[in-house]
Design a protein around this nucleic acid. Structure first.
Lengths: 229, 229
DNA sequence: CCAAAAAATTTGTAGGATGATTGGTACATC
DNA sequence: GATGTACCAATCATCCTACAAATTTTTTGG
């Protein structure tokens, strides 16, 4: 067996350290990093080396540099940026289908594993939706609706699934939010919320999956209709 | 209205161009890029700028630089590297569950959309598996088995789904391949192949999904058993 | 106090110099 | 002829200095 030469380049070492500092919340999203000169001293590397490391993270979507101003943290995960770029090359329907796959699985797992605390979280979301619906506040309804679906996925307790789902949802809604009015979906979505909640509460896998599929089918139809216009 | 400064940094422009050249197969995977000095002339930028662009793509996993040798193309998609890094922080079971979600959905879509050509592809895979099984060639069986599953997903005709599935599968098998013997799964897997094929042939969504779920459940059990040892 | 000008700060780009690693060649040795 | 050694050339890695461009802060003049 040949051992891999484990010598990483200085640039990669620095990039890794910065990534870790971001992940460990030493620098949070929105924070400004110290200027290059300070980082050079801190990491004890040349300006070129530091800049290459920073540039790698900028390209990956974790950092953003502004000439004359500084470097700020944009995201804690490189997956976000990579997925977004990749998904941009896909169609909206493809994205929707993947999201369906993830949420269906998540709903089943949520039905199996949900805790009492998960149920409480879901109830909060449902109430927020009702409230928004009563006030006819479309914006709040949408955000509460997304929150409900995310909470279902969170109850699956699978972090990878949660991360992927979050991305699919984000991309999808940034696609449609500009020209979509979800008003006709108000009553329908509310019905789904309650039924899905009950299924998860009763730990009924099959019916949870069925409700998600139903929900997605309606969303799909509505998107197809919009696309035709 | 203030127009956003649309001026991308030189580095990003160069990185984008290189990315495009890779995507357009001008430089294929395994190819060696021209040395820095030539690229500097070609793009008409400084050494620093070019190096930062290349470094960004190296970090993204598209390129690999070897001191003294050159820079070669490693991959055509940044998603690969990002997913791999992210998935490494997840557990094997989490990955398996996501893979199940994707394949189940893919099998259903395959059942709906499969063409005659898809069926032929699947039959080829099944025959390869049979052949490997008869020869007791474990390596060939595994690769044929993976090929079968990939072909099912390919029949879904959803490129995003295909890309994600490919990654999940790759990571998963790089996890287990070292210490796993799939021999006891031989007959079981073959049964699944045939049943799943029939379901897709008959365009029976539900039963296709059921077979995939069944398959994954067995795989999961077998991985759990291995992990306990 | 306010607004314009100046200065300081910070990232962007350029170019050069030296070191380290790799791949290959020539040559001596056996 | 095979093998090992010394050397050389190509290439990337790192460091350095200098200046440009954009932004922020400070100073200044009214």
């Amino acid at each position: 067996m040949i051992l891999k030469t484990n010598r990483k380049s200085l640039v990669e070492q620095v990039a890794e350290q910065i990534e870790q500092l971001i992940e460990q919340k030493h620098w949070k999203v929105g924070d400004k990093l110290p200027p290059e000169m300070e980082l050079i001293e801190e990491f004890d590397v040349s300006r070129n080396t530091l800049r290459e490391a920073v540039r790698a993270l900028v390209h990956a979507g974790l950092l953003e540099t502004k000439q004359g101003s500084g470097t700020i943290v944009r995201s804690t995960s490189a997956l976000d940026a990579a997925l977004k770029r990749h998904v941009k090359k896909s169609t909206m329907l493809e994205t929707l289908e993947v999201r369906l796959a993830l949420e269906k699985q998540a709903a089943q797992m949520a039905a199996e594993r949900r805790t009492e605390s998960d149920l409480i979280d879901l109830e909060v979301c449902i109430n927020n939706c009702k409230e928004a619906s009563a006030k006819k506040d479309l914006e709040q309804f949408i955000s509460s609706d997304i929150q409900f679906h995310k909470t279902v996925v969170a109850a699956s307790n699978n972090q990878l699934l949660i991360d992927l789902y979050e991305n699919m949802t984000e991309v999808l809604f940034s696609f449609v939010q500009d020209f979509m009015t979800i008003e006709p979906l108000f009553p329908f979505e509310q019905g789904i919320h309650l039924e899905l909640f009950k299924a998860i509460q009763k730990q009924n896998k099959e019916s949870a999956a069925a409700y998600v599929e139903n929900d997605m089918e309606v969303l799909k139809e509505s998107i197809i209709k919009i696309l035709k216009e």
